[in-house]
């Protein structure tokens, strides 16, 4: 019996718009992680500060009886405001998790496709380089937004639900747009930077290692240089410090770093532009496939 006994049949069904071809690629970058228990645990751990610092105080204030939680102790709890959200976004735990997830997911996004030679399979289909890069960035973006914007929205829902005070949202609208701005500006630039780094090599581990060195040790380098020089420019070695400062600027609270808003904007703008240039050079005339 010939192996093509079934016979070849042509496809006559519908086809999707070319603009939507990046969606399956993004989905296939996300799905494998949802099947890894350790990764799900990591995401759950990332949400701890949101639960403890975000929902906890409101819960204690509103849901516990006076015998368990006297109202006199309420003053010792931080109020829900921009300052509290900035503390959650910039606390070392959240940053540590952010770095781990960025390195885990981001380092192999492009490098892995080069290693497995699947990039030429994707680009050999009706998918342009811009859509390819966008799909990879969107996959990482989903995870990064999953540990900032989504928990923030859940915290706000709890806040309004537990207190019954809808006007809170109006009075603290900066929490929403500030976090959104921080996510788009800071994470957007960080994602482009990670993609550019991933596009430079074929080995995801090397890309991951470089990323760890930059993200973890950059802060120490900047701190050492700052104590010796007291020049704000030295913070450019620390994307983490810059991210923390940007979060504070976006939420309108003071930052522990001597980084001005202009410095932050310039840093992330230059980072995004530089990364885009690297990506363009790598994908221009498909140099990355050689």
């Amino acid at each position: 019996m010939p192996i093509y006994d079934q016979g070849y049949e042509s496809y006559t069904g519908a086809r999707t718009s070319r603009r939507r071809r990046w969606i399956p690629l993004m989905r296939e970058e996300i799905l494998p992680y949802t099947k890894k228990r350790i990764f799900i645990l990591l995401i759950a751990l990332t949400l701890l500060p949101w639960v403890i610092m975000g929902i906890g105080p409101t819960f204690l204030r509103t849901q516990m009886g006076n015998e368990y939680w006297p109202s006199s102790m309420n003053s010792q709890l931080p109020p829900m405001d921009e300052k509290l959200i900035a503390r959650i976004l910039t606390n070392p735990w959240t940053i540590l998790m952010l770095v781990i997830i960025s390195v885990w997911v981001g380092s192999g996004l492009i490098a892995r496709d080069r290693k497995e030679r699947t990039m030429e399979v994707f680009l050999g289909r009706a998918l342009g380089p811009a859509q390819y890069i966008w799909s990879k960035g969107a996959a990482l973006g989903v995870f990064l937004l999953g540990i900032t914007l989504i928990p923030l929205i859940i915290v706000l829902i709890f806040q309004v639900g537990l207190t019954g005070n809808v006007s809170f949202l109006w009075h603290h609208i900066r929490i929403l747009w500030g976090t959104l701005l921080y996510s788009i500006g800071g994470f957007g630039a960080l994602i482009l930077f990670i993609l550019a780094l991933s596009a430079l090599g074929e080995n995801p581990r090397v890309a991951g290692l470089i990323l760890v060195l930059i993200l973890f040790f950059g802060l120490s380098v900047s701190k050492i240089l700052w104590f010796n020089t007291h020049k704000p420019i030295v913070w450019i070695f620390s994307p983490i410090g810059e991210l923390q400062a940007l979060a504070c600027h976006c939420l309108g609270v003071s930052t522990e770093y001597p980084i001005s808003i202009l410095h932050s904007v310039t840093f992330f703008g230059v980072m995004a532009l530089l990364s885009l240039t690297i990506l363009s050079l790598r994908f221009y005339r498909r140099e990355i496939l050689r």
């Binding site: 496809y11 069904g13 519908a14 086809r15 999707t16 070319r18 071809r21 399956p24 690629l25 399979v121 994707f122 289909r125 009706a126 998918l127």
Partner: peptide, 8 residues
């Protein structure tokens, strides 16, 4: 790959 090539 079918999806990337335009099949629902």
């Amino acid at each position: 790959l079918g999806e990337i090539s335009g099949l629902p």
